[in-house]
Design a protein around this nucleic acid. Structure first.
Length: 725
DNA sequence: TTTTATGGCCTTTTT
DNA sequence: GGCCATAAAA
């Protein structure tokens, strides 16, 4: 069970070193999670440490959950241990210690969308053109200041040469004021306010130092300065601090992660013990060799040599397809083939991509082949409009004076409250120094509205007030259902009668199961706590009908996971590595590390795919293959690297010219027979035309010469052509 | 004054 | 392809 027998010598070394600072440099797949979970289990079982004295910090909720599950299997009940992300740990602390912070315990957490809305509103108020200073830029300044605990004044003075530094400064200041007034924090505030709390109230810091006598930090290479401060402060008194990381897997420098944290650990924590884990247990020899040959091109790294006892295994496969659609269909057909002939379960597969926009095509292909899949990461369920809307309603009920939520949904569904009316009400509210929501109750405001507006608003506030009243006494599900019904949100969607509206309704119904699950998992959770969970835990908690599915996710979110078969799609310059990083060597190195992370997720089979032509941001682009393909040791690569096929595309794309794999050929054909309306097609007899609609078993096409024809799908000699170019 | 329709613009990765 | 700002319509 928690026996250390199945650890190797180095792992054992790490697991047994419980006192004093410890740095575990763990290469990809070297059993790092296993080492730290065994270490914690050892602390509890052999050294008699109480579980509640242990703090383990991770970066993602997925990693936290994984660690908790493993520990539960080893030591039984792990519920009193804090195994959390930095952000959730800080949120917990700030909520418990809220009396010191100037926030109430029910503070709201703003996600990036909320942040952007606030900044935009401030820009508008200050009459600053968004094109002159983009909200994204301001937010990046705000975030980088908060990440190193720098005041905006300092930033302004350091950047006198920047054109808008004074205005950026003002907006940032105002931004913080708005958040504070709304009793809310952004992600960076959660960390920063914790550090401030610890600095200003030593007794609070001491309380947590005393409680957490053993601190573990996973993915230490991705910590920023403020996270480093938290770790350092918490472990200062006892120095039982264990950090795990790999400089080759540092992929979050763009958001302020500071690689020096791991490189300087031995300086920061005197007499630290260092353990290196270099044996890879995950990947076959060829995959590891390929990944090593890529990462070797980075100059800025600690030299290390990952090795494996495993057999060489299959070579890494690289294929260049004609376009992104082919890439997706090839991926899907290859998954089907492997499931059908090699006995793989769908769970064995991961399809990785550089940015979330790429998931659409892949999703389509999975659907067409009936492959169960799950998208992790950012087309997040929680970022869908209807979910954000209903969450805003719930926030409003929990915290009626929080202005941002109200602003979001006051006119959703449409209540006839436009910009002018809103300004009028806001003017009234600030003159009287009351909240926006309170001002809606004032007779003076209500009577100034038109009949229709007045009616809508009266019923709106009546609904919110009535639901607020009982929010602490009824299940969250009840609050949710009443909101949907009584605010008119659901009715408005029902009235739309469009496909989109139906999809939204489906999502809203699905959200019920999220609520039910969450309430089941967390007994007696109140509305505020529920909402907090929703902001930080962005992964789908949805109950799956299927638990055997292919995982689709970004390269970033794949970190820490492993799969027997991995596809990395979009291996093209400009996409991966990203176009904006091509000309900066340190940013290129981060892209390369990302490639390394992706490749080392694979245990048995690794596919790298690229497309000649890709639909990006609405238009077709030709692309060249990624420099990373070039860097892979050719002795472990098979397929068609260095294949110049742009010409073929220009000479007449047919979509069938290229079949990378003999066994797949048939399947490739079968999807070639599938069409969607809008596709350009070519018919043996009728020439070129365009698909009007597809209604199996027939397809309707309008031909240039022959006009509209109804044809039999699968029988008519039709071929799909490239879409408009 | 609000709502709807059209056209131009950008486009990464996450807690 | 989607967001947002502006212009036309209700």
């Amino acid at each position: 069970m928690s026996s250390l027998d199945n650890l190797n010598d180095q792992q054992k070394d790490g697991a047994l070193c419980t006192e004093g600072p410890l740095l575990i440099l763990a290469g990809a797949g070297s059993g790092k999670t296993s080492t730290i979970t065994h270490r914690i289990a050892y602390l509890i079982r052999e050294r008699g440490v109480a579980p509640y004295r242990i703090l383990a910090v991770t970066f993602t909720n997925k990693a936290a959950k994984e660690m908790r599950d493993r520990l539960e299997r080893m030591v039984g009940d792990a519920s009193s241990m804090w195994i959390l992300t930095f952000h959730s740990a800080c949120m917990r602390i700030l909520r418990m210690e809220h009396i010191y912070t100037g926030y109430s315990s029910s503070f709201t957490v703003y996600d990036p969308q909320d942040q952007k809305a606030v900044v935009k509103r401030i820009l508008k108020e200050k009459n600053i053109d968004e094109k002159a200073i983009s909200p994204a830029y301001i937010l990046s300044v705000i975030s980088s200041c908060k990440g190193v605990d720098k005041s905006y004044e300092e930033w302004r003075d350091e950047n006198m040469d920047l054109p808008h530094n004074e205005k950026v400064y003002e907006v940032a200041k105002e931004y913080d004021r708005v958040l504070k007034n709304n009793n809310s924090m952004d992600f960076d505030d959660l960390l920063l306010n914790t550090v401030r709390l610890f600095k200003e109230h030593k007794e609070v810091l001491k309380k947590y130092q005393d409680r957490f006598s053993y601190v573990t930090v996973d993915e230490y290479q991705d910590t920023n300065f403020i996270q480093y401060m938290i770790v350092k402060m918490l472990s200062e008194s006892h120095r039982n601090i264990c950090v795990v990381g790999d400089d080759d897997q540092s992929i979050y420098q763009w958001r302020g992660a500071d690689i020096r944290n791991i490189l300087d650990f031995e300086k920061d924590f005197k007499n630290a013990k260092v353990v290196k884990l270099e044996e890879n247990y995950r990947s076959t020899g060829n995959i590891l060799k390929g990944a090593n040959s890529v990462i070797r091109n980075n100059f800025d790294r600690k030299e290390k040599s990952l090795w494996t006892k495993k057999e060489e295994g299959e070579k890494i496969k690289y294929f260049r397809l004609d376009d992104d659609r082919e890439e997706a269909h090839y991926t899907a057909s290859e998954i089907s083939r492997l499931v059908g002939t090699k006995g793989y379960g769908y769970k064995s597969f991961a399809v990785l991509y550089r940015n979330n926009a790429q998931s659409r095509r892949l999703e389509e292909a999975m659907v067409r082949r009936g492959i169960p899949y799950r998208i992790f990461g950012s087309i997040r369920y929680y970022e869908r409009k209807e979910i954000k809307d209903i969450l805003s309603y719930m926030r409003l009920v929990a915290n009626p004076n929080e202005g941002e939520s109200l602003l979001r949904i006051l006119n959703v569904p449409k209540r006839g409250i436009g910009e002018k009316t809103l300004e009028k009400i806001q003017g009234y509210a600030s003159a009287k120094n009351i909240s926006l929501f309170e001002s809606l109750h004032e007779e003076e405001v209500l009577s100034s509205l038109s009949d229709k507006q007045g009616k809508e608003i009266r019923s709106f506030i009546a609904a919110i007030d009535s639901i607020s009243e009982e929010k602490d006494y009824v299940p969250i599900l009840k609050v949710y259902e009443r909101l949907l019904k009584e605010t008119g949100y659901l009715d408005a969607l029902l009235l739309e009668k469009t496909v989109e509206a139906e999809a939204r309704i489906d999502n809203l119904m699905e959200f019920k199961s999220v609520i039910i699950e969450t309430e089941k998992e967390n007994q007696n959770i109140n509305l505020t706590e529920f909402l907090e969970t929703m902001v930080l835990v962005k992964e789908e908690i949805l109950t799956q009908d299927e638990d055997d599915y292919v995982s689709l996710m970004t390269l970033h979110s794949s970190k820490g996971l492993e799969f027997p078969v991995v596809f990395i799609t979009g291996m093209e310059n400009g996409l991966f590595p990203s176009r904006r990083k091509l000309y900066d060597s340190s940013e290129m190195e981060e892209e390369r590390r990302l490639c390394y992370v992706g490749m080392t997720r694979a245990k048995e089979k690794l596919y790298l795919l690229s497309a000649n032509v890709r639909m990006l941001y609405g238009n077709m682009d030709y692309s060249e293959e990624s420099v990373f393909i070039d860097e892979i040791d050719k002795s472990v690569l098979e397929g068609d690297y260095r294949r110049e096929s742009k010409k073929a595309v220009r000479d007449g794309y047919s979509g069938t010219q290229y079949n990378p794999f003999e066994p797949v050929k048939k399947e490739m054909k079968s999807y070639e027979q599938e069409f969607a309306s809008g596709d350009f097609v070519s018919h043996k007899k009728f020439g070129e035309g365009r698909v009007i609609e597809v209604t199996p078993p027939t397809i309707t096409v309008i031909f240039q010469s022959e006009g509209v024809k109804k044809l039999a799908l699968g029988i008519a000699p039709l071929e799909r052509l490239k879409k408009e170019g």
